[in-house]
């Protein structure tokens, strides 16, 4: 796919480099020469360009890209102007980063396809992780659905996935198990390594210390997390 990333702050740089690593064609733009140089050799093409310069922006052929991402957000005016120019230039799909909820609202009104609000999203995610000591990772898929890593509740120990009745009882699906595999070191002490079992069979037994990767309604994940304490 072809992406155009406008604004190469920490967020924009990370995004552009990650997309390029996935094998996509990435055009990265910033008005600051130093920022452009920092990722020059990590993406397909770079331009030093002021994104509020309508003429220059329209010469880029933005309608060719699958996504145009406006990754700067601290300068509200520049973000809004750039969004309008990009839309006007015929970009197929536009995604923009918002710094505040008002900013997000304005971007939404401009008719862009996706608004991201990373500070807000990360804050919510961190709150979820910190307030639940046995949730280790948390990823919101849709508004109410999430994937989370939770310590296997004691009532699941020594039961097969089928026997736990997790789907019926808690409304969650176990999509992977992170298991500790103990072994003896040369000097006789014990250590362990972690093994990931993807898509475990219903006959797979859950062991003490397993971490379950579960998919389900966020409410249900919270419920099962409480059972692990």
């Amino acid at each position: 796919m072809q992406f155009c990333v406008i604004g190469l702050g920490r967020f924009g740089q990370a995004l552009a480099v990650a997309l390029a690593k996935k094998g996509h064609e990435v055009l990265a733009i910033d008005r600051d020469e130093q920022r452009v140089q920092e990722i020059e050799d990590k993406v397909s093409q770079t331009f030093i360009l002021d994104s509020t310069n309508e003429k220059a922006m329209k010469s880029l052929g933005l309608s060719e890209f699958d996504w145009v991402i406006i990754a700067m957000s601290s300068d509200l005016e520049a973000s809004i102007l750039t969004t309008m120019i990009v839309k006007d230039a015929g970009a197929k799909r536009v995604c923009a980063k918002a710094a505040t909820s008002l900013h997000a609202k304005i971007l939404g009104k401009l008719g862009i396809d996706k608004v991201v609000f990373p500070e807000h999203e990360m804050g919510v995610r961190l709150a979820e992780i910190l307030s639940s000591p046995s949730i280790f990772q948390f990823l919101e898929l849709a508004e109410d659905y999430s994937i989370a890593e939770i310590a296997a509740p004691k009532e699941f120990w020594d039961k097969t996935i089928r026997e736990t009745d997790a789907r019926k009882k808690y409304g969650i699906n176990i999509i992977a198990i992170k298991r500790k595999i103990p072994f003896t070191e040369k000097d006789g002490t014990i250590d362990y390594k972690e093994e990931l079992k993807m898509a475990p069979e219903p006959s797979e037994k859950i062991l003490q210390g397993d971490i379950l990767v579960v998919l389900g309604h966020t409410k249900n994940i919270t419920k099962i997390e409480k059972a692990t304490r």
Partner: peptide, 12 residues
Amino acid sequence: AKFYILNNRFEE
């Protein structure tokens, strides 16, 4: 204790 740890029986 080590025997039980090696068998993932931590509570024992």
